[in-house]
Amino acid sequence: MLLYFLISCLSFFFLSKSFSLPPWASETKTLLSFHLSKNLLFTNTLHPTTKPDPSSSPLLDQMTILDLPDLALDRILDLLPPSGLSSMAMVCSSLRERCVSDHLWEKHLVNKWGKVLGPAAHREWKRYLSSSSRHLDSSPRNQTGNHPLGFDTIISCLRYISSVLRDGDRQRKALPVDSTMSFYISLETGRFWFPAQVYNRENGHVGFMLSCYDAELSYDTHTDTFQARYPPHGRRAVGVEKGVTWERLRAAPLEASPHHLHVSESLNQLKPGDHIEIQWRRNKEFPYGWWYGIVGHLESCDGDLNHCHCHLSETVVLEFNQYTVGSRWRRTMINKRDHREEGNEEDGFYGGIRKLSCKEEIAMWTRLWPSSNLE
């Protein structure tokens, strides 16, 4: 077994000299060199007078990358970027089976998309697959008995994937079977619109500063930005915004519809200085957005934490310090015991509250803070 691994490693190095290697190959070569040096040292220790000549072995002329041990081959594939996996999958059917496996693509999916994909996005993906399957089931090709995702379709798809990730070709072609690879490619090419939330919608319009709204997103690989579609409300049609950057996106932190009141579970824990997000909408035809604020002190309190009893009161003061002192948007009050949607058509309607405990969430709102106070 040791000799087999040694010959396999040597063949890999000899073959690698005949073509240029991508950047990921250097780490792989280092890994194999380490194993090779250990094996040579072990062999020379047992047979100090023996000087093997690997190039004289007739087996080397017949060796391929598939002759590598599974552990070494899996390590090589694990180091490949998505474009490398797509290219490797076009070599032969054996490599295709390995390169489209979920465990290789899950890492790439999490690394690039993990922060913006929540449970809602995964549910939408399943619905997307279901609708695609119904379309395939009714297609003439499927009725003839040929599988709609056969060898030719997969090869065509893999060529498309490679061209998209390398050259930016965005022509519409068939997707591969239901897999993590399919999910990744559908996101990467912008064909799948996924639900998420956008900070400071409509390019940071002053009316949406320090807010976060639900939207459907489609990725543009050429600009590395997103196109956002906001749900219609009232007489307004679907709002569209282009050029949304990664920094302005997040996965929805709660499983709550933008049209439903969130039932708050942390009201009794709120105390002055706590960071919060609260639902707010302009009128009852609008969807809720999440707005950043801080719990303040009651007017009867002097703000001295050593004597403060605000947390014992049934009334909670919320402050939105991005607005100037005296602005009608600067402060509002809610009732802990009987909390429901509160407000009017003039000042808008306040809904559920979520307390922020994650430092990253608080830091994100701090980075979005406007350069000057709002009126």
Score class of each variant (00 low, 15 high):
D167K: 11
P231N: 06
E216R: 12
P148T: 05
W113R: 05
V206D: 04
D224R: 14
T153M: 13
R123G: 01
S133L: 15
I154E: 11
V110F: 13
H222G: 03
R172W: 08
R229E: 14
G243K: 01
F194A: 09
G190P: 01
L158E: 08
R236D: 11
N200C: 06
W193G: 14
V164G: 07
T180W: 14
I161T: 11
R170T: 13
T245A: 10
F183R: 15
K173T: 01
Y230Q: 04
D224Y: 05
N111A: 13
S138M: 10
V177Q: 15
P232V: 04
T225Y: 04
L136K: 11
D178W: 09
S179M: 05
S211F: 01
I155V: 12
R159F: 08
S218P: 01
T245N: 07
V110T: 09
G118N: 08
Y160C: 14
I161Q: 15
G114S: 05
Q171G: 10
H135A: 13
Q171Y: 08
P195S: 03
D214N: 11
A251R: 07
N142G: 04
Q171C: 08
E216F: 12
G114M: 06
H222M: 06
E188K: 11
S130E: 13
T245Y: 01
R159I: 05
L109Q: 09
Y160M: 12
R134Q: 12
P195E: 04
E216P: 02
F226G: 00
K242T: 12
I161G: 09
L129E: 15
T180S: 13
S162H: 14
E188Y: 12
V240W: 09
D169M: 07
R248S: 09
W125H: 07
H205F: 06
G234S: 02
P148V: 01
S179L: 03
S133C: 09
